[in-house]
Amino acid sequence: MELPVADPGPVRAEGLLLQCPYCDSEAMHKLAQFLLPGLAAVCIDCTTGDLFRKPSVVAVDMRKEMVDYVTQRSETFISDSLIESEASQDQENEMPVDPFEIVSIFMDDFSSTKRNIIGHVSGWLMSDSREDKIDDFVQEMEMTRFWPLERREVIAEVLLKNVEPENQNCEKRLLRRDMDRHCVTVCPMRPMKCPFGCDSSFPERNLEQHCSEFLQAHLHKLLKVIHKKGFTDEGLKDHALLLEKHDNDGKLAKSRDVRSLTNVVKNLEAKIKDDSS
């Protein structure tokens, strides 16, 4: 049965903006992808064993109910967390801080209210058959564009802003004539690619964190270029660790582009050579 046609949700407003539109696009995209399997799981669980209803029949209603539910939960998440933390000193029961884990909890709670008798059986919830049906329904919805990614991203942006408002969006407000310059040159949330050539993309303000976390990977890529011969792959990894060990000032992690990292590497290699001679 084909999925029914229905309004799949809001579309981004077009036109002139007064508030900078940039947010953590990578996080938003990741969460948007997460929403579709969540909807598929709800539709499968609430129709399993039902001879008269199929997942495609309930998909429109379940989507609306799920979006309304997780949005409402996200709107009160910050205040609810503060109240709960003040009332309880049990650190083991602290609310998660990762936005994907938070939204996952919302969706699991919603899903549990929609499961029929079979859906509450633990054996069914853990079965390969259930996972296969969810995967198949996800593919069906993707093929029919029942809930396109760009529509899910609108929802994901709202959820991220609600559960982590200080970390996901640029709050800068500007005159229209200044908006383009801000977005291109100074917005801390403008998307950028890793300057060292790894596959990561992130908001510009996270560059320092990225360079620190992936220092060894960046060093390994750079050393492959500098030392095209004379090192095995394992040898390059060991050499990268040696460089970091001798980097007492932390200049490697502070390098923000290939040129600066190359200069630091060459200086450290010269220092290591002098120390060993």
Results as ranks from 00 to 15, higher is better:
V60E: 12
L149K: 05
D80I: 11
M107I: 14
I105F: 01
E157K: 06
R145E: 11
A156G: 02
D80Q: 06
E86C: 11
V121K: 10
F77N: 00
S79N: 09
E75D: 09
E150D: 14
E153A: 12
Q72N: 07
T71D: 04
D61G: 08
M143V: 09
S127K: 10
E94M: 07
V121Y: 13
V67Y: 10
E157F: 05
S112F: 15
S111N: 12
F137K: 06
S74G: 06
I117T: 02
N162C: 05
K133H: 03
K114C: 05
D136C: 06
D61P: 04
S88K: 08
V163L: 01
K64F: 15
S79A: 06
M66R: 04
R63W: 05
V103G: 02
E157A: 10
K114F: 07
R152E: 14
E75Y: 04
Q139E: 13
F146P: 05
S81W: 14
I117D: 15
I117N: 13
P99R: 07
S104E: 02
F110A: 07
D109P: 01
Y69A: 06
L125Y: 07
E164S: 15
K64R: 03
V163P: 01
S112A: 12
S127F: 14
S112H: 09
V154F: 09
W124T: 10
M95P: 01
T113C: 09
A59C: 09
W147V: 02
R151A: 10
S85W: 11
D128A: 14
S81Q: 09
D128L: 04
F77S: 00
R63S: 05
M143Q: 13
V67W: 05
E101A: 04
T144Y: 07
S88R: 07
E84H: 13
L159C: 11
H120R: 10
